[in-house]
């Protein structure tokens, strides 16, 4: 089965390999990874940076996006769970849609877990970058849609928590509908004569 995914060719991918101080470069031969990257179809730029997430690293990315007219970037560094938002924002500042950013996790999933296998770790880092570039070439620019939020809240339950939440919101200008199953609000709190630690009346 052949699927035509309708991708236009000629993507211009930039690969930015991070040393992360020595966190990555102690185990992974980052220069070799950058060199390898240039051979991956679609890649038109690769470079190494000491700390890609720091401002000079980001500035370099922004400059190269503009200079080399990159239409996708791959940052080979830490987990996307940490710095993906950083590089998305960085790309946006350079005029690139944030959804055209991909990361290769060569730190948590590579340099830190294969410290005694430098060669195998470098091979793996190459693979991770090649996978990220492949995915990057299929990324599409996305617009985040907005959905209207009605300024009104339903609070279910009229015990102390429901009462407090209702009052906080109503005081802030929000319309509140408080739904209570009993004939009165108060809940279990109303049954308490005194409450700890202040030993005062709860109502």
């Amino acid at each position: 089965m052949t699927q035509d995914f309708g991708l236009k060719h000629g993507e211009r991918v930039g690969v930015f390999v991070c040393e992360c101080g020595m966190n990555i470069s102690d185990t992974v031969d980052v220069k070799a990874v950058a060199e390898y990257s240039l051979g991956i179809p679609g890649v038109v730029h690769s470079s190494v940076n000491k700390y890609t997430c720091a401002e000079p690293g980001q500035q370099e990315i922004r400059d190269i996006i503009r200079e080399k007219k990159l239409d996708r970037i791959v940052v080979a560094a830490c987990t996307p769970r940490m710095h993906e938002p950083t590089f998305k924002a960085c790309a946006k500042e350079a005029g690139l849609n944030p959804y055209l950013v991909e990361m290769a996790n060569i730190r948590e999933h590579c340099s830190w877990v294969h410290t005694d296998e430098k060669e195998a770790a470098t091979d793996k880092a190459n693979d991770l970058v090649r996978m990220a570039v492949a995915r990057a070439r299929y990324l599409k620019a996305q617009d985040e849609t907005e959905s209207k939020v009605i300024k009104k809240t339903l609070v279910i339950g009229g015990g102390v928590a429901g009462i407090q939440a209702s009052l906080d919101l109503a005081d802030a200008g929000i319309e509140v509908v408080l739904v209570e199953k009993s004939s009165t609000i108060g809940g279990m709190m109303a049954q308490l004569g005194k409450t700890f630690p202040t030993m005062d009346c709860p109502t």
């Binding site: 959905s147 209207k148 939020v149 009605i150 339903l154 279910i156 009229g158 009462i163 209702s166 009052l167 109503a170 200008g173 929000i174 319309e175 509140v176 509908v177 408080l178 739904v179 209570e180 199953k181 009993s182 004939s183 009165t184 609000i185």
Partner: peptide
């Protein structure tokens, strides 16, 4: 305070029967 508040509508003896839609609406 709940009964006095102009922006709180209190529905006692009430039960939420159904909720549809999603965040915001």
């Amino acid at each position: 305070d709940v009964s006095r508040h102009p922006r709180i509508e209190l529905l006692t003896l009430a039960k939420v029967e159904d909720v549809s839609g999603s965040v915001g609406n």
